[in-house]
Design a protein around this nucleic acid. Sequence first.
DNA 1: AACAAAAGAGAGCGCTGCTCTTGACAAGCT
DNA 2: AGCTTGTCAAGAGCAGCGCTCTCTTTTGTT
Lengths: 262, 262
Amino acid sequence: MLELVTDTEKKDATNPPAASAPALTPRQRARTQTVADIIRLGRRHLALHGAAALSLRAVARDLGVVSSAVYRYVESRDELLTLLLIDAYNELGDEVDAAVEAVPVDDHAGRFAALGRAVRTWALREPASYALLFGSPVPGYNAPAERTTVPGTRVILALVGILESAFQAGGLASEDKVGAWIPAALQADLEAIRGQFGLTVSEELVARGVLVWSALFGAVSFEAFNQYGPDTFSVPAELFDHHLAVLAGVAGLQPRPSRDDG
Amino acid sequence: MLELVTDTEKKDATNPPAASAPALTPRQRARTQTVADIIRLGRRHLALHGAAALSLRAVARDLGVVSSAVYRYVESRDELLTLLLIDAYNELGDEVDAAVEAVPVDDHAGRFAALGRAVRTWALREPASYALLFGSPVPGYNAPAERTTVPGTRVILALVGILESAFQAGGLASEDKVGAWIPAALQADLEAIRGQFGLTVSEELVARGVLVWSALFGAVSFEAFNQYGPDTFSVPAELFDHHLAVLAGVAGLQPRPSRDDG
DNA sequence: AACAAAAGAGAGCGCTGCTCTTGACAAGCT
DNA sequence: AGCTTGTCAAGAGCAGCGCTCTCTTTTGTT
């Protein structure tokens, strides 16, 4: 598998520092480097012109190579889309994880807010990547589930982790949330989710968690996709923070941790 | 430069005779019909292959005409996208309005649920159109605001209408919703919205209305864009109805009208 | 019938994804 | 060293795309 390089590295494929690398032949090293370059250029192209305009020929031009040559490294345009998809999922997941872990473990509401803000920040910084992940599905392209489900579920995993630990710490106002009648089929689905994630929260709270999840991305999408008018909200972050506070209440999160910081 | 014939033109004063048919020349009739055919075929193409694959040449083929001929009727591919956008906005608006008006005026929660279900039903029936309206913005395409804002705001107008009339009828549990601290800039924006729509509800409730709005479309988008796994929810409508019930509570709507039906 | 406006047809430009073939070069084995 | 094999870049080419231009045909009106 290939690894992403930071933007400080440019094109040092012809300049191997030392033989301390593992048992990789120069060929393999050059190949992974070229694939990484293709992903980097593809990301740039994606951010500048959008997913639908992502062109293998343009990437080849930026790479200084004829168009057919990139097919040695990337099977097709869809394959490049998949690579960019995984790359974007992991970048989002990394930033969300970092933001969440920067907040004390017992401040569940704070962790939830950090998660939401991290998603929004990343989405507004990388709107094309966000659109690729959470916008309209690219027509004719089906992401290979075996490669994208793991990185694609990191955010929701972080969210359920926060809610579950809040519940176990007693920081979730659970049972006073009456909610709506849950039909049988939905009840069964929610129980399956509980089992899958090993959750101890109630089905009602699982359903509310799903709502909070989709509502969070709905709010981010509205902003990233310019569904609000251009002049409706002068400081959209304030609106988003308000939404997060209301959504925390929907999930049952208390605004403060159960005990004060000593 | 061509322009679409929408309604009576200015310079038909030379032809006012008493024909029961509208004062359109056969040329104009044929032209309007051809444009309507192009929109119809474009919709079919859109539904089958998605917005990014919408091809003027394919529409021309379906129309039985050479590709350059359609440029007599549609200025460009973006122009066709705009026509489809307006068409879709109006279809969604019509269905939402019909669904809302089928519920008694004083059943505000019922009207809200009808609105939400209408949006979801239309989105799942016309996923490509929904993606065009609420998904990733088509790169390089900017919808002309002067033609799309009016049809594009019909759903949110219907939603604020429901919430406002619920509030005026006393059916909105308004002031006990404490909510979060609203900063000054957001407060000013919310007051501007109140003024723009002539609302009497509080700023807190306006903010919650915006959240409900974006959350509704977030839930619909998650379903329409297959963000849930394929086997996570066996009866997604039940999950959506549950979400609607919770969101109605977020907006302050009571589950029943203030007085029973006589 | 004559005329002018409108519409269709066709060629063409530059772009796209993708395939196939050819030639150059490096790595590894005898 | 000689040879084979694998890898890579390059180029031509196919079909499709949006769009423009010119030319011809149709059509409604005078």
